[in-house]
Amino acid sequence: MSRAPSRLSRYARPLLGLALPLTLALGWELAVWLGWSNGRLVPPPSRVFATIVELARSGELTRHIAATLYRVGLGFVLGVVAGTLLGAIAGYWSLARRLLDPTIQALRAIPSIAWVPLFILWLGIFETSKIALIAVGVFFPVYLGVMGAILSVDRKIVEVGRIFRLSGPAMIRRILLPAVLPAYVVSLRVGLGLGWMFVVAAEFMGASEGLGYLLIDGQQLGKPAQIVAAIVIFAILGKLTDWLIEIATVPLLRWQDAFGRERGGA
Score class of each variant (00 low, 15 high):
Ile231Gln: 11
Ala90Glu: 05
Arg71Phe: 00
Glu203Asp: 03
Ala106Gly: 04
Leu34Phe: 12
Asp257Gln: 12
Tyr184Thr: 07
Phe76Gln: 01
Ala258Pro: 01
Pro111Tyr: 10
Leu78Ala: 11
Ile65Trp: 00
Asn38Lys: 13
Glu209Ala: 15
Ile131Glu: 08
Arg47Thr: 09
Val42Asp: 04
Ala56Tyr: 10
Ala12Met: 11
Leu22Pro: 03
Phe204Pro: 00
Ile89Tyr: 09
Val153Pro: 12
Ser112Leu: 15
Glu54His: 12
Ile134Pro: 03
Phe76Leu: 08
Ile52Ala: 04
Gly238Cys: 06
Ala56Met: 12
Gly75Trp: 00
Pro178Lys: 12
Arg71Asn: 03
Thr241His: 04
Gly191Arg: 00
Gly27Tyr: 08
Asp101Pro: 02
Leu237Asn: 01
Leu118Lys: 05
Leu133His: 11
Tyr70Ser: 09
Gly191Pro: 01
Ile150Trp: 10
Gly73Met: 00
Thr84Pro: 02
Ser152Cys: 11
Ile172His: 06
Ile233His: 03
Ile104Leu: 15
Leu211Ile: 07
Ser152Ile: 10
Ala170Val: 13
Phe204Leu: 14
Arg10Gly: 12
Asn38Glu: 14
Ile236Val: 15
Leu192Asp: 00
Ala109Cys: 08
Leu78Trp: 02
Gly218Pro: 01
Gly148Ala: 14
Gly193Glu: 00
Pro182Lys: 04
Ala90Val: 05
Ile163Glu: 06
Val116Met: 14
Leu41Lys: 10
Leu24Gln: 06
Ala179Asn: 10
Val116Arg: 03
Met171Arg: 13
Met205Lys: 05
Arg98Leu: 12
Gly212Ala: 11
Ala88Lys: 02
Val186Asn: 11
Ala132Glu: 08
Ala225Gly: 01
Val72Asp: 00
Leu100Trp: 03
Ala248Glu: 09
Pro141Leu: 09
Ile134Lys: 05
Ile236Met: 04
Ser58Trp: 09
Arg97Met: 08
Ala25Ser: 07
